[in-house]
């Protein structure tokens, strides 16, 4: 594969059946979406709107009930193994393996794709250094702060040199200063690497600051607005924020978003 593939979501639906009541709950409702290669897209939506379900489907851990999601001509679910080493994820919590040092955590995906030991070591070390953790490579997760652990998680994702980077509320639980710093680092690295990046968030500021595009999800998940941030001058970001807020609250597109 040369460069990241385009992502195409067509008529995606996900319906869950509740175990206790037997009732069906629609998490994603006929979602249509296209993401170009190397685009940085933030998806914003209310808590419980189906963002994380969409994230699981994008990773390939869950299958749609109807419709399709394709990365190029492949499905992340049906062609699961095809994407080994090509899709990297950063989760809300760092999800580091507590028995592995920072270096060994960063090496994990490289071990899974079977890189030679020396290359694993070199690449993981380089990314940890790049993220300012050169002095902490042998530290275990419990010896690191929340921000440092999330840096290791980011190093783990970038060490794969993936085509597609997916982040689910990856900076939401950190303090503001650390979150902004890490978010900027993440974006810089994603653009340098030329990866397609999809960031899921419930924070409007973050969504606008990060994305080339901001996609606003309704509840259940469907596209209410698809905004190209560059079309909004920085001076109008306040209005943009208010319009997205109104869209989320009313669960229908705000006229100001066009």
């Amino acid at each position: 594969m040369s460069g990241p593939p385009p992502i195409a979501v067509r008529g995606l639906r996900k319906v869950f059946r509740q175990a206790n009541s037997g009732q069906s709950v629609i998490a994603i409702d006929r979602l249509d979406l296209t993401i170009a290669p190397r685009e940085v897209v933030s998806i914003v939506g209310q808590t419980g709107c189906g963002k994380s379900t969409f994230f699981d489907i994008m990773i390939g851990l869950d299958a749609p009930t109807e419709g399709s999601i394709r990365f190029g001509d492949k499905s992340p679910y049906a062609d699961f193994d095809h994407f080994r080493g090509r899709i990297a994820t950063v989760f809300q919590q760092d999800r580091l393996l507590p028995w592995r040092s920072a270096l060994d955590n960063a090496k994990l995906p490289l071990e899974l794709i079977g890189l030679p030991d020396a290359e694993q070591h070199e690449r993981a070390l380089a990314w940890l250094r790049r993220l300012g953790l050169g002095q902490f490579t042998s530290a275990f997760p419990h010896e690191l702060s929340g921000g440092m652990r999330q840096r290791v998680a980011i190093a783990r994702a970038f060490a794969m040199e993936p085509d597609i980077l997916l982040a689910d509320e990856a900076f939401g639980h950190l303090d503001e200063v650390t979150a902004v710093e890490l978010r900027d680092t993440f974006l810089k690295l994603a653009r340098e690497r030329g990866s397609t990046a999809v960031l899921i968030t419930h924070q409007l500021e973050e969504a606008i600051a990060v994305g080339d595009r901001v996609i606003v999800f309704g509840k259940p998940a469907r596209v209410l607005a698809d905004i190209r941030v560059a079309q909004w001058p920085a001076a109008q970001h306040g209005i943009l924020r208010e319009a997205i807020q109104a869209t989320l609250q009313s669960n229908r597109p705000d006229p100001r978003l066009g």
């Binding site: 699961f80 989760f91 999800r95 393996l97 794969m160």
Partner: peptide
């Protein structure tokens, strides 16, 4: 969470 993280790396 750890199982999901691990599976995401295929």
């Amino acid at each position: 969470e750890l199982r999901q993280m691990m599976r995401s790396f295929r």
